[in-house]
Amino acid sequence: MESPNNPNEFERLLALADYDLDTIELEGQLKDLTKLAAKVAGTNISLVNLIDAVTQWSVAGVGMPVMQLPKEDSVCQYTIQGDQSLEIKDLSKDERFKHKFYVEDDPNLRYYFGVPLRTSSGHNLGALCVLDTKDITITPEKADLLKIIAEEIINRLDIIKSVNELKSKVKESIEKQEQVAHDIRGPIGGIIGLAQIIKDQGTNNQLEDVLEFIKVIQSSSQSLLELADQILSTKAKEKAPKQLNLQNEYNLQVLQEKLKNLYGVQAEQKKVKFSVELVSKNLETRFSKIKLLQILGNLISNAIKFTPEGGSVSISLSLEEKNYSNRLKAKINDTGRGMTADQIEEIMNGESKTTKGTSGEQGYGFGLPLVKHLIDGMGGVLKIDSEVGKYSAFEVIIPV
């Protein structure tokens, strides 16, 4: 059965990408709310699910391991279509879900109640849901409490987003401070040197008045030079960036592990060989993580989706310096069905049509245009090479 079509899906995905969430790091911040939701509802299971173009990510939960699920297999894909709660008394009697593995097999789910996670701008990022293997009654009072919990989840996501934005602004401010200090050191050093020359010449010419003036310039310039040195060695430089880096930046090794942990499961479920390799020597250089998981994740998910069982998806990561700045280069290669020249052109023009994956996975036509949009916004480059029935190769180059 076809998944529901949301006319504002691209805007919803942009809103989710704007939060720039790391799904691995959210469980600790939302676990208590999932416990509260299960207690309020009287269910054994509660999950917080975020839904992108391809995948439902269970980022926190009780009674069931957090997991990844193809979007077309999820119940919450229907919850996020509106602003009201969705209740399904018996999943086994619903044509949309009765043949899903989580209904026919362990854990044999039956009851579902979902509340959309709706932002202040009106976009549903995902859903808070409670589930059970038996029939449950959710009273209006309980439904209101679950809605309040869902609002608190959004509040916490907003806080995480604000904190990350603040970290970026603080780091940017520190970098500007360093740049100012760097920029003024040269001119001020020149003034000091020139003042010394004039001073020496002035002594020979007995220009006492000029000498006094030059001495003031020299003294002031020396003070500015010392100030610049203090800025460069201040604790804000020594400590704050390091603390920010730990939470708001990656190096290649960290990015490699993130991609393995996030997408290795999808590949394993589909029996597709999956690898993430580093082809760069500067492994410790840190760079901003902003939007990287959204960009690379969509490309990797699509590669897995369109690669048949027994095929392979390989990623190579490198960091190179050009014109005194770093560029992250990522290559995603698959042995999937490939694309025609027209399909590639549609993607590069920010357009795409829905197609199904090699195992019948539902396509949404939003993932790749979203990637192109994000890369363009970061001043990056997307290159695509493909041959129908053989392979697809994506290369992403992003200034970081």
Rank of each mutant, 00 (worst) to 15 (best):
L30I: 00
N155T: 11
E152L: 12
E27W: 01
G28D: 14
N323P: 03
E351S: 14
G28C: 09
Q247G: 12
D18W: 12
E345M: 07
S352C: 13
I344S: 00
F101S: 15
T203S: 15
S3H: 05
M64S: 14
A127N: 01
L145N: 09
K215P: 02
D90K: 06
Q269N: 14
N245L: 05
K142E: 05
Q266P: 00
A303R: 01
G310E: 02
L319V: 01
G193P: 08
T133N: 10
E208A: 07
S392T: 00
I231K: 08
V265L: 07
E172K: 13
Y324G: 10
K353P: 02
R337G: 04
T307H: 00
D385T: 00
T203W: 08
V180M: 09
L157Q: 03
K176F: 11
P399S: 09
E320M: 11
Y324S: 13
G338A: 06
K169Y: 08
L292P: 00
A330W: 05
I154P: 11
G363V: 02
Y112G: 04
S120E: 15
V103I: 10
E268L: 13
K281V: 01
Y102Q: 03
G28W: 06
L370R: 10
K289H: 08
L30K: 14
S275L: 11
L317W: 05
L146D: 08
K271A: 02
T55N: 09
D229S: 14
F394G: 02
E212P: 02
L16H: 06
T335N: 05
V254L: 11
F366I: 09
H182N: 15
L232S: 11
E87N: 05
T335L: 02
D158C: 01
K199N: 10
V216R: 13
T203H: 13
